[in-house]
Design a protein around this nucleic acid. Sequence first.
RNA 1: GGUCCCGUGGUGUAGUCUGGUUUAACAUGCCACCCUGUCAAGGUGGAGAUCGCCGGUUCAAAUCCGGUCGGGACCGCCA
Length: 435
Amino acid sequence: MTQQSERVLNADLPGHVGKCVRVEGWVHAIRKFGAVNFLILRDRSGQAQVILEPGQMERLDGLQVETVVAVEGTVEEEERAANGVEIRDASLEVISPVTDVLPFELNKRVLKPSLDVFLNNATVGLRYPARAATFRLYSDLLFGFRDYLLGRDFTEIHTPKLVGEATEGGANVFQLDYFGKPAYLAQSPQLYKQIMVGVFERVFEIGPAFRAEPHYTVRHINEYTSLDVEMGFITGPEEVMGLLIALLEQMVQAMVGRHPRDVEALGIELPTFGEVPRITFREAQQIILDRHGENRFEEPDLSPQDERWLGEWALEEHGTDFVFVTHFPTTKVAFYSKPDPGDPEYALNFDLIFRGQELVSGSQRINDHDELLARLEARGMNAASFTGYLEAFKYGMPPEGGFAIGSERLLMRLVGAGNIRETTLFPRDVNRLSP
RNA sequence: GGUCCCGUGGUGUAGUCUGGUUUAACAUGCCACCCUGUCAAGGUGGAGAUCGCCGGUUCAAAUCCGGUCGGGACCGCCA
């Protein structure tokens, strides 16, 4: 049995100058010059340049890029190589040959295929370095999310996605057959996370949310990953909003700290936080009237155009990429949102707009059992189907509140993607159920 | 669900408005050959598309009309 060198990652090669190493990865590109050939090898850490003599080059005859290979050779300093080193005197071993031509080029500066073609071939398309980098940063954002919350005594939970009742009412749920009974895919962990405040005070969940709405927009998909936070013993929604901003700052820091080269390579414009303005729904409408001459006072909610305008306002007037809009009409918010005691027409809720798009919504919740019951009945909802939820309030619930971040939207806005499907690994939309 | 746009080699586009010198063009990819420093390599040559599908108008359709399927954008709704 021949002694096999231990694998070295491409990014670590500069620390192995003069040594014989083994690298493994995918053939990203080949540049043939007859006598001397360049092989660009890609692994999880990055790319490396290998010099292949013609005899070694022959081993790739008939094979395509993305062939998986192992290369053993000597690391040499080389100014002309991309990261200052290259591998010479290399011997190449094919680990997994590729004979089919790729559906589109992965080794060009720009990715050419339309989004539809890309997504139909996402299994290989995601290997495109910039796309892989995007999702590496997504992982960092989630790390930052966990890191911040665990550090503040939050408990991570996972609540069921198969539920017997539609979470918040409405018909926009996927129904399925559960041993002969109707069941639904959870549209939100909302009710369960509130229940869990009664156990842990502070909880969070990273999990899927399913929405059966047939929406055709660049910012909606039918399965998305929701970043849910819920906390008890709050003094008001302001406390929750403060935590949200600090949390987002840490998430961005995690991204920059863990993969600064990806941040740079993707040309990410880091968000400006500053003092995030907090305006009420009515104030937001006034701003739109003042700045754009559009009277929105009869509208029960903000339109996408309104959100874009408010994003511009926040940037120009407050130098921040964020703006809170609070106190939406009580009739418009979810049944569990607490009305403002000072003006019950409006709720103690908030939306956070990031770069002109709704990113987070949250509120202080009704924590009084009887008030909750009355609210359900006033809305014509069947209180009997909320028995388990209501029980948690019957047996003692502190003032509490929370929010949910659309994780793919956050990533979309950070990397400047034009469509949420670009920041979802395998998006589920009205027409797409595979891959 | 409403409105509007788009389907041309593997991929991305031009050509469509104003039907006919279009054996459908260009780039990239693929194949072959040349090249000792590329890094979006370069050069020469080659293969690859009955122009989404069905029907209609016409002497003639990628081009005009109708239907159909597929894709995209905006609105509604939301994260």
